[in-house]
Amino acid sequence: MSDIIPDALHEHRSYLIRYAMLQLRDPDLAEDVVQETLVAAIEGRAKFSAQSAPRTWLVGILKHKIMDLLRKRAREPQLDVAEGEDENELVDALFKQNGHWADPPRTWNAPEQSLENAHFWNVFEQCNQRMPLNTARAFMMREFMDMSTDEICQELGISTTNCWVILHRARLALRECLDLNWFGNAR
C-alpha cells in the first residue's frame, strides 16, 4: 500500500505523541515533532514500502525528527549544574564511604510477570519522568531509541566518560525507583 491516506496516519498520532514525550518530556516540543512527522509522512508516502507496518515507518521518521531537535538543542548551552549535583547525592546515598552498598539490592520477585502488568508500565513511565531531564534524555536515547554511546555523546556534546556516568546514574535511579514503588522493597 504505497498510498496510505492522511486519515490513517492520524490514527497513530496519540501513540507518536506518547513516544515523543518519553524522549523529550515537553508537551509542546512533542506536539511539534509529531506534527512535522505527519507532514513528512504525507509528503513521502509514495516512498512507503509495503514491507513495513505504518507505525514502524512513522516511528522511524519520528526518531529522525527527535534527533534533529536534540541536535539543535545540544548546541544551545543549557546544561544544568544543579542537576549533576542532585545525581551525585543519589550515588552518595546508595554507597558507603568504603564503596559497599549502604543497603544491598534485594531480589525482585517475578520481574518477568511485571512486563505483562499494565500497572507496572505506569510505574515505569513515572520512574522515567522522575529522572532529571538531561539524564532521562541520554538514557532514552540509549535504551529507547537504541543509539550508540558515541552517537549520544556527539549529539549532546559531552565526553564519552561523562556519557557513561550519566547512563549509569540513570540506571541507578530507575532501579531505585522500581525497587521502592513496584517491587515493594520500601525501606
Binding site: 531480589t107 520481574p111 508500565w121
Partner: peptide, 16 residues
C-alpha cells in the same frame, strides 16, 4: 541482584 535488575531494566525499556 543488581546485575539481574539491570538486565531487566534494559529489557523493559526496550519493550516500552
Amino acid at each position: 541482584n543488581f546485575e539481574k535488575q539491570l538486565a531487566f531494566i534494559r529489557k523493559a525499556t526496550r519493550e516500552l
